[in-house]
Structures are given as structure tokens and as C-alpha cells.
């Protein structure tokens, strides 16, 4: 790994980093990835999952849920006419 990799990952994750932080993260990540790399040496035969993935359905009826629209709207960083306002995307 080098500093460019850290910058690339930070951009993918949308996290602003300072130069000092990038250097620190690079050394941390090198040592942590070095450790978890031992998984490469594990010999595992191809195992079938015993867990059958299945949908969990509920009856198609309206369930009332207790939540507060007011609390949600109060926390919008920016709003207009009760709607969440965000910056232009395109």
C-alpha cells in the first residue's frame, strides 16, 4: 500500500483526511492488513452454506408504527415547505 491507495480509499468512503492523518492511516492499515492476511493461509474446502436464505414475509396488512415525523423533519439540515432540501445532484 502507498499514500495514493489511502487517498483513493478515503475518496471512495467520502472522508476528508489531512496529510498527517493519511500517513498515520497508511502505517496502521499496513500492520492491520498484514495481520488479517493470515486468512490467506487457511485451507478451506468449498463449503455449502447450511443456512437456507429465505424471504421473511409478513401478512399484507397495514401495521401502525410509532414514530415521530416531527422529530425526523426537525433534524433535516436544510428544508423547504416541510421537505428535505439537498444540493443539486446533476
Amino acid at each position: 500500500m502507498d499514500i495514493k491507495d489511502v487517498e483513493n480509499l478515503a475518496e471512495l468512503a467520502r472522508i476528508e483526511l489531512t496529510e498527517a492523518e493519511k500517513i498515520e492511516l497508511l502505517s496502521d492499515m499496513d500492520s492491520i492488513l498484514g495481520y488479517v492476511k493470515q486468512i490467506e493461509e487457511m485451507k478451506i474446502e468449498d463449503v455449502e452454506s447450511e443456512y437456507r436464505v429465505h424471504n421473511v414475509w409478513r401478512e399484507d396488512k397495514i401495521e401502525t408504527r410509532d414514530f415521530s415525523k416531527e422529530i425526523i423533519a426537525e433534524q433535516f439540515p436544510d428544508k423547504q415547505d416541510g421537505f428535505l432540501k439537498v444540493k443539486k445532484i446533476l
Partner: peptide, 27 residues
Amino acid sequence: NLFEDYMLSKGAGFGKETRRRVLLGAY
């Protein structure tokens, strides 16, 4: 712009260990 909003908000909001794990996860 929106991209900068993300970068700045996450940059200011997440602590050291959180950043580390998010980056390691992305990796």
C-alpha cells in the same frame, strides 16, 4: 457541492478508529 458536503461532514464527524475501519472495509 454535494460531494464536498459528504467529504467535510464525514471528515468532521467520524473519529480516528471509525475512519480506520471504514477505510479498511472499503479495502
